[in-house]
């Protein structure tokens, strides 16, 4: 069997508008999205609504997705790279119910991918939209808690504070000690928070073919990176930006050059490293790739509910 099939749409609930939000709210969000695209990396304030899931659990991403999604879209939702984490399941079910859209776990089949903390390993293509859930959209927030001050810094393109912070890292730790939510500069103008993705994913944002939209519900900000846009991770000449690398391939699919999760196997120090991107890992196994800890009798059925193996 190849990659998981796209699920059939469920019937739309009559009680709410298509995709839950009322049309006036969608218009307001759509206007903010257009401004965000026109000013790449700039955080557009928007009148975020209360959603039927808590703030901090993806309300910004959900509002962006609800404002752009149409009946022909195919939606994928991931959290930590995985389609089957509980919050991803919950958000996917929300849209299947309120918008009646088809959902998928297959990255290439999706037209909209809503994500928390990862960018899929599969290269995104033109026509796809990647919607990020963002907790704290302001990259300068941990250096300066005041909105009035950070807004001024963006206006004046005054990012010295960020460089000082990164350089203090180097002085103290011998390296830049930021491993996720690593700040980027967009099109040479705005310093932007890529959301708490590992810095491993930062290079995927650079000149991506997909449109990238960012929604921060609690903080009421939307921002965007159009396709083919320069996204450069901040660094220094003597300390260039570098991404994490793993000493071993994925234990299940043998994949290399991908982001891995560490799984604790027992209380005696047993560890294994597996792909964080579940769809990537499953497709590779379906293609016959085998990792060190994937036994011979393992089914290649990528859609099976559990992966269970004797060590």
């Amino acid at each position: 069997m190849t990659s998981p099939a796209t699920d059939a749409p469920e019937p739309t609930l009559a009680r709410y508008n298509f995709a839950y939000l009322d049309e006036q709210t969608k218009r307001m969000i759509r206007r903010a999205i257009l401004k965000g695209i026109a000013i790449p990396g700039y955080q557009v304030p928007f009148a975020s609504r209360e959603m039927p899931m808590p703030y901090g659990w993806g309300t910004g991403g959900v509002q962006v997705t609800a404002a752009i999604i149409g009946p022909d879209d195919v939606l994928k939702v991931i959290d930590q790279g995985a389609d089957d984490t509980t919050n991803a399941v919950s958000i996917r079910a929300f849209f299947a119910r309120t918008a009646g859209v088809a959902t998928t776990t297959a990255t290439p089949e999706a037209t909209i991918i809503q994500t928390r903390h990862r960018i899929p390993e599969t290269k995104l293509r033109e026509g796809q939209v990647l919607v990020y859930q963002v907790p704290i959209p302001e990259p300068l927030r941990f250096l300066e808690p005041r909105e009035t001050e950070t807004r001024k810094m963006h206006a004046l393109e005054e990012y010295g504070l960020m460089h000082v912070k990164l350089y203090e890292d180097i002085a103290r730790n011998g390296r830049i000690a930021t491993t996720y939510a690593y700040p980027v500069k967009v099109e040479g103008r705005y310093v932007m928070d890529p959301s708490p993705t590992p810095k491993f994913d930062n290079p995927k944002m650079h000149r991506s073919e997909a449109l990238q939209l960012f929604g921060a519900g609690r903080e009421k900000r939307i921002y965007a990176i159009p396709p083919h846009t320069d996204v450069v991770s901040l660094d220094f000449e003597d300390h260039p930006f570098e991404i994490q690398s793993f000493d071993q391939p994925c234990a299940l699919c043998g994949g290399e050059g991908v982001y891995l999760d560490e799984v604790v196997l027992d209380d005696r120090g047993g560890r294994m490293f597996v792909c964080s991107d579940t769809h990537h890992c499953e497709s590779r196994r379906a293609e016959g790739h085998r990792g060190a800890l994937l036994g011979d009798e393992a089914s290649a059925d990528a859609a099976s509910a559990t992966v269970k193996e004797e060590m």
Binding site: P54, Y55, G56, W57, T59, D79, Q80, G81, T85, N87, R116, H117, R118, P135, T179, Y180, A181, P196, T197, P198, R218, Y259, L260, D261, E262, S276
Partner: peptide, 15 residues
Amino acid sequence: GFVEHLKLPHYVDFQ
């Protein structure tokens, strides 16, 4: 919402 969101998986960042 934001305090309780710490319950959500963060293992990618933690890794």
